[in-house]
Simulated scan of single mutants.
Amino acid sequence: MKINLSDSHKLEIVVLSRGADEYDYDYNLQLTLSSSGFTFTKEVWADGSEVQEFIKNIESLKSTLKGEAKLTSESPDELELLIKPVDALGHFVLKIELGNQFMIGKEWFWSKYIDAFSLEAAALELVCDELLENLV
Rank of each mutant, 00 (worst) to 15 (best):
N57E: 14
P85Y: 01
S73N: 02
E120C: 13
S118I: 11
V93W: 08
L98W: 00
F109V: 15
K106H: 11
L82D: 04
A69W: 00
M103K: 07
E107A: 14
E80T: 13
A69N: 00
W45I: 08
L94M: 13
F102R: 08
G99W: 01
E107H: 05
E59D: 11
D77L: 13
V93H: 08
T64M: 04
E97K: 10
E80P: 06
W45A: 13
W45K: 10
Y113W: 15
L81E: 00
T64P: 01
F102E: 07
S118D: 12
E120G: 11
I55S: 02
W110C: 11
K106E: 13
P76Y: 08
L89Q: 13
Y113L: 14
A116W: 11
G90D: 08
G90A: 01
T41Q: 07
K112Q: 13
G99Q: 05
Y113I: 15
K66H: 03
N57L: 03
I114L: 05
V93E: 12
E68D: 15
F117M: 10
L79T: 01
L71N: 00
L94G: 01
W108D: 10
I114R: 10
V44N: 03
S111H: 03
E97C: 14
Y113R: 10
L82T: 13
G99F: 07
E68C: 14
S111D: 05
K95H: 10
S63F: 13
I55A: 05
E53A: 09
L82V: 09
D87E: 05
A123P: 06
K95N: 12
D115Q: 08
